[in-house]
């Protein structure tokens, strides 16, 4: 817990530093028209750095030996996170609908151990339903890949 608290606080301080850097470029002063573009970001970031520094000190001084995530808990979390990241990555290449089908199928079979019939049914019907709702009814285009191009969508 201590390490995680420290890492988070440090990360936010670095972020604050980046903001300060850009705010200075924009001008942090107060012109005749009121504050310049960088005025608010600058002071917000300075406050952020200060608050995080205190939180960091608190994290160090309070000996909280609990781990941030236990090994037993990390497993299920990663089992949700990695497939989600994979979904986003492959969406860029093969489009959202095919990725959604693959993702649903893999997840249902791997985590849920559902029967192949159920897997197939959901993995086909769900993307198909979303396709019609978004592309046909609401005319909201989603990322599409080679399959949709081949079908002339």
């Amino acid at each position: 817990m201590r390490a995680a608290g420290l890492v988070t606080a440090s990360f936010l301080m670095v972020l604050g530093g980046v903001v300060v850097f850009d705010a200075v470029r924009l001008g942090i002063g107060w012109s005749t028209d009121g504050p310049k573009s960088g005025f608010f970001p600058f002071w917000l970031a300075v406050l952020l750095i200060a608050a995080c520094a205190v939180i960091g000190v608190q994290a160090v001084s309070r000996a909280d030996a609990r781990p941030f995530v236990g090994r037993a808990q990390l497993g299920p979390v990663l089992k949700v996170l990695w497939p989600a990241v994979a979904l986003v990555v492959i969406t860029q290449w093969i489009g959202l609908y095919v990725s959604a089908a693959l993702y649903t199928a893999v997840y249902m079979r791997w985590i849920g151990r559902h029967s192949w019939l159920a897997v197939l049914a959901v993995a086909v019907l769900f993307p198909l339903a979303t396709f019609f709702i978004f592309e046909k009814w609401f005319l909201v285009p989603m990322p599409k890949g080679p399959l949709e191009a081949w079908l002339g969508q």
Partner: peptide
């Protein structure tokens, strides 16, 4: 195991 992927996909959309 069905709801999670569906929610994630809907969130992505």
């Amino acid at each position: 195991a069905i709801l999670t992927p569906v929610i994630v996909v809907v969130c992505a959309i």
